[in-house]
Design a protein around this nucleic acid. Structure first.
Lengths: 230, 230
DNA sequence: TGTAAATTGAACAAAAATGAACAAAATTTA
DNA sequence: TAAATTTTGTTCATTTTTGTTCAATTTACA
């Protein structure tokens, strides 16, 4: 029994029973209380559990649903609203999409238009669009694994060299007074530049994120041609 | 019993039992603890297992090499040659990879270096490298679904703005007189620029493609620091 | 065949893991 | 509230494991 096995076992016990006492763990695993305590401290640092006086309990901190799950939520309603957004589409347009799962609802409507060119900083959208055999360009720059986005100085430079007809954006928060904002500084900057460079900008966003305000302002809604709440 | 057989056996034991102690492996394989320890270190660097105090356990990290890589991993020759290519690696390097599955053999060796920065025009390599938690930049530009590559005018401009310490390239053909060539014009141009911009360039390629010559010349081998035939 | 490189093991110093002792802090009890 | 009890964290000693270095041996290769 080494450190790793012991900690794995402790985690099993804690997760299956909701919590465990140091004294019990010590007795059942045949290690001193001191060792157990050190284990719990390590595991708490890694966010695996929460330490309390006398032992440890499960860590039920906030967790995020994976992206594929979020896409399944409210499918029907979102489809209808994406249809409304699709009314801004025309043949031959150069279109920018930012990084967002919400925008994926728009993709089916691209099929009916000819000679579109898509630019995006989302690798997920890149793949989906490519599978539809629509030419797609990705901004260059630093890859962020969490959102599947490309951002940073180079992505900004890339965008400044392009003038899309329309930008479809999604963001994290929209305050009551019309302030569109994001919690990621780099992605907020991408959005700002996309709006600057594009003739038209349309915001799509999830109603659930309404009314809040994140650290980095993207723009005010009066700069947008349309705001569609899914 | 040579190094490769021994490591294969160690991996079997670890994978079948979930873990093994150095002292036990030493006794059952009749090798000194020191040798076992060196084996484990090597195998950990390649991501095949996880070392813990006293021994090793199965690698349950979130990063897994793709199946085709793990299936090939025991082909000693490729492993050895990738190892030779890895000798060009140093801490803190800025490295370019072009679009090629061959280069994936090098990835395990990246883990042992600190502060690397990778630039590539391959989305497949981008994903693998990101999963290893190494900062990775993608060139901007047109996406080509077939090879999973980014190329075109913007990718070229992106590359010209960067000066990597070393470029690892793979290509489609290498003629007997040392002409490195490619059948895709855009990707050949990317390679040319990468060589131009990099302090050092190393070619890795599959022996099967040896002796031929494609439409677009990339460079001559005397421009390369090393040519490694897998 | 001789030389360079890789492999291996031994010795020993350095580091990690563990438990015991005890003072400090938290909790319970009176 | 104070005393008693339990739990915690610090420190130190002991044991185990690891890494470094060097020498011997084997292997690769020119």
């Amino acid at each position: 029994m080494n450190l790793n096995n012991r900690q794995k076992k402790i985690l099993q016990i804690v997760n299956s029973t909701g919590g465990a006492k140091v004294s019990d763990l010590s007795k059942s695993l045949y290690f001193s209380g001191m060792t157990i305590r050190r284990d719990l401290q390590m595991m708490e640092n890694e966010g695996l559990l929460k330490r309390v006086h006398g032992g440890a309990i499960v860590n039920d901190s906030d967790f995020q649903y994976p992206i594929w799950y979020r896409m399944e939520i409210n499918k029907e309603q979102k489809k209808k609203l994406a249809q409304r957004a699709a009314k801004h589409l025309r043949d031959g347009q150069v279109i920018f999409f930012n990084t967002s799962s919400t925008l994926a609802y728009l993709l089916p409507y691209l099929q009916q238009y000819k000679n579109l060119q898509i630019i995006t900083n989302s690798v997920h959208l890149l793949f989906m669009i490519s599978k539809m055999h629509i030419p797609c360009f990705l901004t260059g720059g630093r890859y962020n694994e969490v959102e599947g986005s490309i951002s940073g100085r180079q992505a900004e430079a890339f965008l400044r060299g392009i003038n899309p007809d329309i930008a479809f954006l999604s963001c994290e928060a929209l305050s009551p007074d019309g302030c569109v904002s994001n919690s990621n500084e780099d992605l907020a900057e991408i959005d700002r530049i996309a709006i600057e460079q594009s003739k038209t900008a349309v915001l799509l966003m999830d109603q659930s994120k309404l009314g809040e305000r994140c650290t980095y302002t993207v723009c005010h809604t009066d700069r947008l041609a349309d705001v569609i709440l899914l």
